[in-house]
Nucleic acid binder design. Structure first.
Length: 723
DNA sequence: CACGCTTATATTTTT
DNA sequence: TATAAGCGTG
């Protein structure tokens, strides 16, 4: 018997043992959701279900590994490792390697991450000549996000433009051109973006042979964070389920025994739906019993995480939502806790951001004095850049931290440079990667790149990849190098480069050759390839970047992480599907004492919990973000974001609200805006201990303050001249 | 044709 | 800050 099963409360037990009909677990924050889900998997295994036939879909890799870790410690490691666990995207990647051929996909397809697909969109944008239009054309990021929104919401471009991008409405026709060129290019080069992973998976579930085969794979499908799935993901789940009357004999197959229906178990909390911007729709959860007839619902309401005072604030925020906000939750539940004694949460208002940073640092050190390690504390915020000021202060005080969310180091230019080198080796038809690498060299610009791509036949996809595909159907490793003519021709010296680039090009040719020098079954270890490519970087970086040496040492870090992988292809794929969530920028690599503070966006903090939580920038304008004002659905999501943040705290909760902050993130101007603490806190203000920060505004701010004051005065004077 | 300069402009969250 | 677009120089 699973040891902790006995520690489960009746509702949790019910969720673990329920069989026979689809199950929806409505699990409030901190109600032991992870524990319950893990216990259910353990129970399934103990009941004799083949672990391999269990699919556990989670929102992040972190969530999957935590859950499977628990499973492993309750059963045995081998069983746990055979469970299919991971994100929708990672699982799709795995399935498409095997079943993708039914959809005409090469098993060696490359996955583009967000930045890659944005870059590709940018290439298409310029190639299609949208640079020189009379009207200013949307930037590549905007184009890419419109595209993704259209795909994920499955809505018409015109409707998306009207509702979400009104300022781009004029470019509807042009966008169509770009989108189809973008799609054509992806197909041509056997490349999939994140959205494709979902689309292809869904399409395959309704393919005549692959569909039934995939449905045969799993007997149990468990989905975590169901409130944050989008319509495509919902289709996928349904498409992966055997129902009583589908497939089986109906499809005319030979087996005389009809397989039992697949059992689905979804877990979620609609009060914590915070991914609407990614087209997640809580409606999936609300419609669960329509999508899965005969479904049973179990509600978990006992909160094991937070003290009553903290829970009181969180419940209050949710219950007393302002009328401008629509309904926040459809499932009735009231969280309660047995941890009835606890500190009253604190709300601190600050004069400005600098004062907030200093106070937070002091609070953190204070809490540590009281016995709360840094690792038990987190600072949460709405947007990645909200921690900028605090990070400086933390570094100044030598407080180690790790930041989750915001810009990741994989997205920094120099890391992408190196990954592009690997990607060329992996898929010599990857024009995007070639483009990046070639133009990094001295004296090579857009025109030369075009010429080289042409001369080397990089864009000549059939020649470059078909050989690889034919020779290694379904194999794990990438195609043998000698068949990829573009790359081998480059190595052999084809492709004239300008004199200024010849040394760099020679180094690159040699490095590529060395990286490919292993034989087909025994590739050069990926870490060694990274190291071999480094000299090229040291030639090229100084022209490209100011701080070349710092960036070069990041390459070493990359080599270190490559060490964990046996093949380059796997390394690249894992990296795009499961990018390390941490930012590289740290206050020194986690100090000797191995204790560090967590900084995180609220989105990335989902599922986390800490003894002390410091929520910063909780001022109107930031929370809710003023971009959501006027949009009911958006406001509701902002409120749930607040709820998620508050419910991360176990023992101590401090909410900080600076009353002045910059209007523009990158603003070189001194413009500030005055704000109130978040309106979401208004109904629960009496549940807080309120105080005004004693920290003085920083010197710079005083100057800025004067500046603003003086400007106002002058402007008023001027205005009086013509009014 | 590359590259270094100048200008205007945007707005958040992530697999 | 970073991206896009335009312009002048070599």
């Amino acid at each position: 018997m699973f040891a902790t099963t006995t520690e489960l409360n009746p509702q949790q037990q019910h969720a673990v043992h329920h069989r026979g009909t689809p199950l929806l677990i409505v699990a409030g924050a901190g109600t032991g959701k992870t524990k319950t889900l893990a216990a259910r998997v353990v129970q399934l295994i103990e009941d004799g279900v083949d672990p391999q036939r269990i699919l556990l879909l989670t929102f992040t890799r972190r969530a999957a590994s935590e859950m499977l870790h628990r499973v492993a410690s309750a059963t045995d490691d081998r069983a746990a490792s055979r469970v299919w666990g991971g994100t929708f995207h990672a699982t799709s990647n795995r399935l498409l390697r095997n079943f993708g051929q039914a959809a005409g996909l090469s098993p060696n397809f490359t996955v583009l991450d967000q930045a890659d697909s944005t870059d590709l969109m940018g290439m298409v944008r310029t190639d299609e000549g949208f640079g020189e239009r009379s009207k200013r054309f949307p930037r590549k990021d905007t184009v890419a996000s419109i595209y993704s929104r259209v795909v994920n919401s499955q809505a018409k471009l015109a409707d998306v433009l009207e509702s979400d991008y009104p300022w781009c409405a004029d470019h509807g026709e042009d966008l169509k051109v770009i989108f189809s060129a973008y799609t054509a290019r992806k197909r041509r080069h056997h490349v999939l973006d994140y959205d494709d992973l979902l689309l292809f998976w869904r399409a395959l579930t309704s393919a005549p042979t692959a569909g039934p085969q995939m449905r045969e794979l799993f007997d149990h499908i468990l989905i975590d964070e169901y409130q944050d799935t989008n319509p495509i993901q919902s289709d996928i789940i349904r498409g992966m389920c055997r129902t009583a009357d589908a497939d089986g004999r109906a499809a005319g197959d030979t087996s005389s025994i009809q397989s039992k229906p697949t059992e689905v178990c979804a877990v979620g909390d609609d009060a914590q739906a915070i991914y609407g911007f990614r087209c997640a729709s809580v409606e999936n959860m609300w419609a669960f019993s329509e999508h899965f007839p005969g479904a049973t619902t179990v509600t978990l309401e006992q909160n094991y995480r937070s003290t009553s005072p903290i829970l009181g604030v969180a419940n209050g925020v949710l219950a007393a939502a302002p009328t401008s906000v629509g309904p926040t939750s459809h499932f009735a539940k009231e969280l309660w806790s047995t941890k009835t004694n606890g500190q009253t949460p604190t709300l601190v208002t600050h004069h400005d951001e600098g004062a907030q940073s200093r106070t937070v640092c002091e609070n953190i050190l204070d809490a540590r004095e009281r016995g709360i390690d840094l690792r038990d504390q987190a600072v949460l915020f709405r947007a990645g850049h909200h921690s900028d000021g605090l990070e400086l202060e933390l570094v100044r005080r030598d407080i180690p931290f790790v930041k989750y969310g915001g810009l990741k180091y994989l997205e920094s230019a120099h890391v992408k440079d190196l990954l592009s080198l690997l990607r060329i080796l992996d898929n010599p038809a990857d024009v995007l990667a070639w483009h990046r690498v070639l133009s990094a060299m001295e004296g090579i610009g857009p025109a030369t790149v075009r010429r080289l791509v042409d001369e080397l036949g990089i864009d000549d996809v059939d020649a470059a990849t078909s050989a690889a595909t034919d020779s290694q159907p379904l194999a794990e490793a990438a195609g043998p190098p000698e068949t990829s003519t573009a790359l081998s021709r480059f190595i052999a010296g084809d492709g004239k480069v300008p004199a200024a680039a010849s040394a760099e090009a020679d180094e690159l040719r040699a490095a590529f050759a060395d990286c490919l020098s292993g034989n087909a079954n025994d590739e050069v270890p990926p870490a060694d390839q990274v190291n071999r490519l480094k000299p090229f970087c040291s030639l090229v970086f100084p022209n490209r970047y100011d701080n070349a040496s710092a960036r070069l040492s990041d390459i070493d870090q990359l080599a270190a992480s490559a060490r964990a992988y046996g093949s380059r292809h796997r390394f690249l794929t894992e990296l795009t599907l499961d990018p390390p969530g941490k930012t590289s920028e740290q206050a020194g690599p986690p100090h000797l004492d191995d204790d560090w503070l967590t900084l995180s966006t609220i989105h990335s903090a989902k599922g986390g919990e800490w003894r002390a939580v410091h929520l910063i920038h909780a001022a109107d304008g930031n929370m809710p973000s003023d971009m959501a004002l006027g949009d009911q659905a958006g406001m509701a999501e902002e409120l749930r974001l607040m709820y998620v943040a508050l419910t991360r705290a176990k023992d101590e909760l401090t909410v900080h609200a600076p009353l002045r902050f910059h209007v523009n993130r990158h603003g070189r101007d001194d413009r500030h805006v005055l704000a109130q603490p978040s309106r979401f806190l208004d109904p629960v203000r009496e549940l807080f201990d309120e105080s005004a920060s004693s920290a003085q505004p920083s010197d710079e701010t005083v100057i800025e303050l004067d500046g603003v004051g003086v400007t106002d005065e002058v402007d008023t004077l001027l205005a009086s001249l013509w009014d």
